[in-house]
Every structure is written in structure tokens, then in C-alpha cells.
Design a protein around this nucleic acid. Structure first.
Lengths: 224, 224
DNA sequence: CTTCATTTGTATCAAATGTTACAAAACTGC
DNA sequence: GCAGTTTTGTAACATTTGATACAAATGAAG
């Protein structure tokens, strides 16, 4: 029923041999469920009391707004787990409705059984802790980034972070277009801000190559 | 050395009897360390490979900016744990420097030992998972809120959330001043946005009482 | 009711950014 | 080198919001 060769590729079960997975799953209760295209796997608001791992096919997560319209949030495919971030915590309800994109087969492990796996197997425990911790760290980073109001602040933060303690020339690894999207601003606005910082002798812009001229004043931008 | 009556109040060890805590701590390696006022417990950037629980006193978390100036981030006191969010995950380094505010005594549990505790004791495991999951959910919420660009969007989101499926009149539980701060905008800007939405027949504002007139168009604000 | 403090509504101006458009520069494949 | 595409620089204008100020409305205390 379960396919260890796929499960073992899932972030939560990574690093576990197929044999070990087979053995572990013999000792917990779980279900393998199949869905056809457009079937609903999970309704938004439903209690998240089980871990769902996609074994075959792909699903999409949709969010329903207050007027009832649905918006697609993301696609997930085998071997990824669903909503690892909502198995625990205060508000452990699915924030999204999950719909099958095609023929889908999933493994459903009740929360209590999954806790057993976490306690039995250090690798699974570490994998799971790493997964949600990494997510929290990612969100935290993103939040910090958004806390900077002006574009110049975002640029300053980004450049100082990229530069670290090393040399003062930062090579942009992306186009300004992509950077602008990361910053959540328009491309001309980003170019304008870069241009102004250039004039203010904060940085020296030469296409993708940016030299930091004044770390001190860059910081003042961020704090004072 | 450890004080079970304090540790048992810590979020991670909540729900465990003092006797059980004493027993558990006999089976893991840990240290109790003391610090004087202004001593540094942890330097930013240091590997976060241990759980630190404050047993007595209080500490402050400071962040050092790129020019070397330090900014206070938050205060933490007994019986709270330090940096639970950074024990696991990809980037498990302390993001802040931790400094003692006064005479401080902490319990330090190496990561590997803490993993043992998680595997031995379901309550600790659940507490810890709940702690970091709740944090991730909180961050996720906050991020969603910040993703709304205009003040009107923030108002629409807030009102629709408050209203839920129930009646269409929302009583503001705070002053506009406080609401404005929550939204990260100035008070006059909030009042202006409310006034405009009033004119546009989206809502009917009467001081702290706001009636939602058109849910459909409120949603259009959020999405399209 | 009167007086004072708080809260709310409104106006004006400046700053920052979005929107749109276009040209210059750099890159790509030939 | 050349033609076409992508990327970048720049401009003009509209929109949104911040900053500041002040008046009107409300609420609280006497």
C-alpha cells in the first residue's frame, strides 16, 4: 500500500532507508487514500489532526475569500507533506482547501501516531523540527525585511547583508526586475532609489555591480 | 541546582510535575550557569546548539547593526526559554546577543540531550512543537497582514475578519490611535481612509461602530 | 451645566512610490 | 559586426501616505 521508495524522498522521512520505513509503518496506524481529479482532500477550517503525505499525483491549495471566491495559493506534488506547519500550535486548522489536480494517492497518519514516529526515530524528529523551524526562520526573515518602510532601507539592508564583513562590492545575482519583486516594489522605483543613493555617494552603481561607499550612513538609514 | 518549581512553569516544561522534572534531569547532561549584570550569555552569530532556560533574573536580547551599534530587541525573564526558534532549522545561529540585566541563573541543555527529552516525554515534545508551530502561525498571520499594501485593504481585511459570518456591524475594541499603530500607519491616514470608504458606501462609520455595507466590494479591494 | 482632556474628523503640504512610457545599454545568436 | 531581445536608466504624472495642525465631538469629573 505505501511506497517506501517515495515516502523516503519526503522531507520528513528523508535519510531513512526504505526497509526502515516499511518497518516503522507496520507499527503505526495509517491510511492510504485515493482521490480523483477535483476531489477535495481537505476543507479550509477543518481540524488539522493528521499528517498527509502525497504519494502520487499533485494537489493545489486554495483559499476562499470572504465572498466565496477561491484563489489558488500553491501546487504540491509527491512526495511532499501537507500543512506540516499546522499539525501543532494553537490554531491547528487548515488555512486552505486542498483539491486534487489529478489522480492522487496520499498517506494519512493521525497526529497521535505521527508523534509516536517522532519519539521512536531521531531522524524523523530532527527532520520535522528542522522543517518547521526553517519555515519559522524564513518567515521571520521575510517579516524583518518587510518592516523596512522605504526602498532605500530595503536596499541598504540587502546590500549590507550580502556584503557581510567582506569586501564592499556586491554583485547582484539577479536582475533588477527580480530584486524589485523580492522587495515588493516596482522596477522603476528600485532603479530610481539606486540612482539616488548613487548620487548621495552612499553606493556606486554599475549595472549589477554595486560598491558600498559609506557603511555608516547606510546604517543610519536603517535605524535613525 | 535546578529548581523544578520554576522550570515547570516554563512553556516547554509546562504540565510536567516537579518530581518528574527532577527525575528527567537526572538522566540528561546539563549545566546551571550564573551570570552577573551586563555579562554576555550569548553572542550573535554563535551556533545555537543548546536550549537555555532562564531560572532566575532577566536578560535582554540585543541586535548589533552593521556599524556596531546595539539595539535592544526584547526582555526575557524566568522561566522563559531562549531562542527556541533557532535550536533547529537551517540557519541555527543566534540572531541576537543576549546580555544579563541583573544576577541571572540559567539551565543549559545541549541540543542532543534536549532531543532525548523530546523523545522520552510526550508532554515536552508536544509543548515544544506547539511553541514553535504557534510562533510560525503567528508570523504567517502577521506576514499576511503586512502583505496588504494600502490602508483600505488593511481595514477591509480587519473588518471582514472581525465580522466573520455574523452580523455586519463591527465595534472597534480600541481607539483609532491604537488601531492605526497596529496597522503601522498614522492616525490621520487611518481616519481619512475610513472616511473615504464611508463616502464610497463600502462602510458606514459612526465613531467606534462600523457597519459593513458591501462585502463583495470589500473583497475586491483585497484581491483584484 | 461647565470645564477639561481625550478622541475623532478634516485640511494642507511634502515625501515616497506606483504607473506608464521610452530610450540607452548590454547581451545573444547568428 | 548585426539584428533582435533583454535589461537598465530616466522621465512625467497620479496616487498614497506621512507630518502637522487645528477644530469638532465626545466623555469624564466636578
Amino acid at each position: 500500500m505505501i511506497r517506501p521508495e517515495i515516502i523516503s524522498q519526503s522531507p520528513v522521512f528523508m535519510g531513512i532507508t526504505e526497509a526502515e520505513i516499511t518497518r516503522l509503518f507496520q507499527q503505526v496506524h495509517y491510511q492510504v487514500k485515493s482521490y480523483g481529479k477535483s476531489d477535495i482532500l481537505v476543507n479550509a477550517g477543518e481540524l488539522c489532526d493528521r499528517l498527509i503525505v502525497i504519494q502520487e499525483g499533485s494537489v493545489k491549495a486554495e483559499m476562499t475569500d470572504y465572498s466565496g471566491k477561491t484563489i489558488k495559493i500553491e501546487d504540491l506534488e509527491a512526495p511532499f507533506p501537507l500543512a506540516t506547519a499546522f499539525l501543532f500550535g494553537k490554531n491547528n486548522r487548515f488555512p486552505v482547501t486542498v483539491v486534487a489536480n489529478n489522480e492522487v494517492r496520499v498517506v494519512v497518519i493521525p497526529k497521535a501516531e505521527f508523534v509516536k514516529l517522532l519519539q521512536w526515530n531521531t531522524v524523523i524528529l530532527n527532520n520535522y523540527l528542522n522543517t518547521i523551524s526553517t519555515r519559522a526562520q524564513f518567515l521571520s526573515q521575510k517579516l524583518k525585511f518587510l518592516s523596512f518602510k522605504t526602498i532605500k532601507q530595503k536596499i541598504a539592508h540587502y546590500l549590507l547583508e550580502q556584503a557581510g564583513d567582506r569586501l564592499a562590492v556586491v554583485e547582484l545575482p539577479q536582475t533588477q526586475e527580480q530584486l524589485a519583486e523580492m522587495f515588493g516594489v516596482t522596477r522603476p522605483a528600485l532603479a530610481r532609489a539606486l540612482g539616488e543613493m548613487n548620487q548621495e555617494q552612499l553606493i556606486e552603481v554599475q549595472r549589477k555591480s554595486i560598491r558600498i561607499l559609506n557603511k555608516e550612513r547606510m546604517n543610519q538609514l536603517l535605524n535613525g
